[in-house]
Amino acid sequence: MATPSATTTLRAGLPDRYLTPDDIADMFDLPSVETLYTWRKKRTGPPAFRVGKYLRYDPAAVQAWVSEQMAADNAA
């Protein structure tokens, strides 16, 4: 059984796992994961947390961040 992509599962509902930087970069069609690391340093991107040395994203927090970005764009 094939595992659906992060983009598909986030649109269909929350995936049953935390997302990796590669998942987020694919979802937002970013040039590289380095963009996420830059956002993290500037505290402008979706919230992430560390599991040991690995960076992970909670799908619910990513959805909330996207909603905030859309609301800010609509308010401007």
Rank of each mutant, 00 (worst) to 15 (best):
Y54A: 12
L55G: 12
G13K: 04
T44K: 08
T8C: 06
E68W: 06
D22E: 06
A60L: 10
A75H: 12
D16P: 01
S32F: 03
E34N: 15
A64V: 13
P21G: 15
Q69Y: 00
G45F: 10
W39V: 00
Y18G: 12
L36A: 00
P47C: 10
V51R: 09
A64M: 06
A64Q: 07
A12Q: 06
S5P: 01
A71I: 08
G52R: 00
L30I: 02
S32T: 06
A71Y: 07
R50H: 06
L19P: 05
A75N: 10
A72H: 06
V33L: 05
T7P: 05
P47F: 10
L10Y: 03
R56W: 05
K41D: 04
Y54I: 04
T7D: 10
A76L: 15
A61W: 04
A71S: 12
P4C: 13
G13I: 03
R11T: 13
D22L: 04
P59N: 01
Y37V: 08
K53A: 11
T8D: 11
Y18L: 15
V33F: 02
E68Q: 07
D29I: 14
A48H: 14
S5F: 00
Y37Q: 14
A61V: 02
N74M: 14
T35M: 06
P21Y: 14
P4Q: 09
A25G: 14
D29F: 13
P47G: 05
L19H: 09
A2E: 11
D58N: 11
K53T: 13
T38K: 07
L55R: 15
V51T: 08
L30W: 03
V66W: 05
D16M: 02
P47W: 11
K41F: 03
S32L: 07
A2G: 01
T8N: 12
A75Q: 14
L55P: 04
R43I: 02
F49D: 03
